[in-house]
């Protein structure tokens, strides 16, 4: 017998697959693009949720990783398309348009950035942590705007999506399938990590640091590991997002982006593995249905968000699958 949460997970993933397939048959490519957007935002949210839901680390600066992933894509593809090198000394480093390499670089660099930001930020906690993560993202935002080499505020356009073996990635449905496959992979990894010894220790540290310390674990190290994994996942999402748009700009670093990623997590349900995916899908749905209603649709969006925080704690998952979380 499946639990309500498992049923909801299955329904969500099926819906995310069936909508674009239906749109493909009906020749509605834009619907596919929209769903791809939801899937990518979902991955970004899963990243944040790993730090936030599991480790209790409220980061308002995940745009830093999202943006870095985007720029990894932009810079590598730009150099490949113009046949120039990223650097020529001490060794020659060319660009690339192979998605797999771009993903790897995005993941590694985001993890490295998260290690740096995390090591500094985790010296603080609570509101200080929220604010210092925000400040680091702002720093990168201003850097990206004023650094002229890669377009500054104009951003960087690449005109064709990057390559993935055997696929025509410019075809919306094929690119969607790539993203959907990555979503499944990330979900599986996060699910496994949440149940691993590390995940359990992290969850325990969030609830009671003293007890974990008594068991010989170092909470700070657990948090930092979680933050690095979290940043890496969000960085991957950033690379995919830039590829979806064939464009990257400093907007990806802005604090509104951080806020939106947080909204995906909270709309869906903090701490639920599939929560951010549901949250991102709902957000996209709201954006496009409200956007058609009026120029002032942000008012409605704000009211709905407010309603969720005040009256529907636990987001969609809290509403439908009930309060209790399996491993909490």
């Amino acid at each position: 017998m499946m639990s309500k949460e498992a049923l909801l997970n299955t329904a969500l993933m099926a819906l995310l697959l069936l909508v674009p397939l239906g749109a493909w048959f009906a020749d509605e490519p834009f619907l596919i693009t929209l769903t791809t957007r939801a899937v990518i935002f979902g991955i970004a949210g899963i990243g944040l949720n790993f730090a936030l839901g599991l480790g209790g680390l409220v980061s308002l600066g995940h745009a830093a990783f999202f943006g870095l992933g985007g720029y990894v894509m932009g810079v590598l593809a730009y150099h490949a398309q113009t046949y120039t090198s990223l650097m020529t000394w001490p060794f020659e480093l060319p660009g690339t348009t192979a998605m797999t390499i771009i993903w790897l670089v995005a993941i590694c660099l985001s993890a490295l950035l998260a290690l740096g930001i995390g090591a500094l930020s985790l010296r603080t906690s609570g509101v200080y942590f929220i604010m210092i993560t925000l400040a680091f993202a702002q720093m990168l935002y201003y850097f990206a705007i004023s650094w002229p080499a890669y377009g500054g505020e104009d951003g960087l356009s690449i005109y064709v999506r990057n390559r993935f073996v055997g696929l025509n990635t410019m075809d919306p449905i094929q690119f969607f399938m790539v993203c959907y496959g990555l979503l499944l992979l990330v979900l599986g990894l996060v699910w496994a990590m949440a149940r691993s010894a590390f995940g359990l220790a992290l969850g325990a540290a969030r609830q009671n640091e003293e007890r974990v310390r008594a068991l010989g674990q170092k909470p700070q190290r657990l948090y930092l590991t979680a933050f690095v994994i979290s940043g890496a996942i969000t960085g991957l999402a950033g690379a995919l997002f830039a590829d979806l748009n064939r464009f990257v700009s400093p907007t990806m670093f802005s604090w509104q982006t951080s806020g939106e990623i947080m909204i995906f997590v909270i709309l869906g349900g903090v701490g639920r593995v599939f929560g951010p995916v549901a949250g991102a899908a709902l957000f996209i749905l709201l954006e496009y249905s409200l956007g058609g209603l009026s120029d002032y649709w942000h008012v409605y969006l704000g009211a709905i968000l407010l309603g969720v925080v005040l009256f529907a704690r636990g987001g969609i998952y809290g509403l439908i699958a009930g309060r209790e979380v399996a491993h909490d």
Binding site: V58, V127, G259, I263, I266, W297, H298, V299, L310
Partner: peptide, 24 residues
């Protein structure tokens, strides 16, 4: 009595309402 996360999101929502309400 809520955690900081709820506070951040709720007040973020208030920004949206205030900004677009003022523009309206």
């Amino acid at each position: 009595e809520r955690d900081h996360l709820d506070q951040v999101l709720a007040t973020f929502a208030l920004i949206l309402i205030f900004s677009e309400g003022t523009r309206w």
